[in-house]
Design a protein around this nucleic acid. Structure first.
Lengths: 185, 185
DNA sequence: TTTGGTATATATCGTTTCGATATATAATTC
DNA sequence: GAATTATATATCGAAACGATATATACCAAA
C-alpha cells in the first residue's frame, strides 16, 4: 500500500509552511523529487481536504490582481497523522521507466532513435544528480542524509553502467527487427 | 509523457501470446517487473480496447466450470502501433518509494519501526535481484540484456549502500523528534 | 481428512490521481 | 518590444488503481 497525496502533503509541510505551488515545486526540484511525485490536480484538492479535517491551517495573503496566496501550516493533529501514516506495516517501491521500456524493446526502434533515447537517459541521471547535490539542506535530519546519500550513490552507479555500456550497446547499428510473420494457427 | 497500459500490453504480447492473467504475472515476476507495472483493473479493459481496434486477436479456450481462457496475440498493426509508440520523442522515469519516504522522515518514526522498514527495504532488493537473476530468457534480444544487466547493477549497488550504512543509521537509537511546538502566529 | 491458503482466470466499479486547460500578472530573456 | 518563463489557484475529463466478486483446482498443514 502506498502513501496517498494527503500524506505526502503533510510530509512536505512538516519541512515548513508552504503554498500548493511550493509543494509542487518540492516534488520537482526538492529533496523528495526523486522518490515521490504529485501533480497540481491532486495537491490542491488534498490541501482542501486536509484543511477541512483540521490537519493543516491556512493563511491567505492577498496580492492585487493575482490569485490569493494560500500558505498552509501543519497542525499538531496533522503531524500526529503523518507519524501514524509513516508507521504503517507495509511499504512499496515502484519504478516506472519509459527509458528502460524503450531500451528493452530496442530491436523495434530505429538505431538513430536508440542513440537519442540512450543519451537522454544519461542526461536524465546527470540532471538528477545535479539536483541532488544542490539539495543539501542544513538542519539535516539523519534520515535526509541517508536518503540523499542513497540517491547519489544509486544514480551515480546507474550512470556509470550506462556510460560503460554505451558503445557496446549502440555499436554496429544492430538492425531493426523484421515484422514478425503471421503465425499459422 | 509515459506509456499507457494499452502500449504496455502490446509490448508484453510482443514477447508471445498471453492471457490477461499471464500479462499481469509478467509485471509481477517477468522481465519488466522492475520498470513497469499494471493491474488487472487496467489490463482487462485495455485488452478489450486493443481487440476492438484490431491491434490484437483473441482465441477463447473453454474450461468447464471456470472462466474461459482468452489468449491474445499481437497483429501486424498491433506491432506497428507498438513500434510507433516506442519512437515518441519524450520519455519519463519515475520512482515512487514508500521506503525512502519513511526513511527520509525517520525522525518521526519509532526506532524499532525504523529497523523493520530498513530491513524490509533490503529484503525488497534481495528479492528483486533474485527475480532478475531468474529471468534469463533465451532468445535474448540485445535490449533485454542491457536492461537486465542495468537492473542487476543498480539494485546491487543500492543494496550495497544500505548494508554499508545500516549500523551507522540505526545506531544509538536516535530519539523520535518531539512534536513541534505551535508556532506563534 | 477437512480446513485453509495459494494459484488460475475474468470482470466490474468506486476512488484516486494525472494531465491538460483556464485565468491572470510579473519578471525575465531574446 | 515580444515572447517565454515563473508565480499562483482551480477544475474536469480521462486514466489507472485497488478492492471485490465469482468459481474451481491444487497443495499443505492441522
Amino acid at each position: 500500500m502506498s502513501f496517498d497525496i494527503k500524506t505526502i502533503c503533510l510530509g512536505a509541510l512538516s519541512l515548513g509552511d508552504a503554498t500548493g505551488y511550493e509543494i509542487r515545486k518540492q516534488f520537482e526540484e526538492g529533496p523528495f523529487a526523486y522518490f515521490y511525485d504529485a501533480s497540481f490536480g491532486s495537491i490542491y484538492p488534498a490541501l482542501n481536504k486536509l484543511l477541512a479535517d483540521g490537519l493543516v491551517t491556512c493563511t491567505s495573503e492577498a496580492h492585487p490582481g493575482r490569485p490569493t496566496k494560500k500558505i498552509y501550516s501543519l497542525t499538531a493533529s496533522g503531524e500526529a497523522a503523518l507519524r501514524a501514516a509513516l508507521s504503517v506495516g507495509s511499504a512499496d517501491h515502484k519504478v516506472r521507466s519509459d527509458f528502460l521500456a524503450i531500451l528493452f524493446f530496442a530491436h523495434l526502434v530505429d538505431p538513430a532513435q536508440r542513440v537519442k533515447v540512450y543519451d537522454a537517459y544519461c542526461a536524465f541521471y546527470r540532471t538528477a544528480l545535479a539536483k541532488l547535490a544542490d539539495a543539501v539542506d542544513c538542519d539535516e535530519k539523519f534520515g535526509h542524509q541517508l536518503v540523499q546519500g542513497f540517491g547519489v550513490h544509486v544514480y551515480t552507479s546507474a550512470l556509470d553502467y550506462l556510460e560503460r555500456n554505451r558503445e557496446q550497446f549502440l555499436q554496429g547499428d544492430m538492425p531493426v527487427a523484421e515484422p514478425r510473420r503471421a503465425v499459422g494457427k
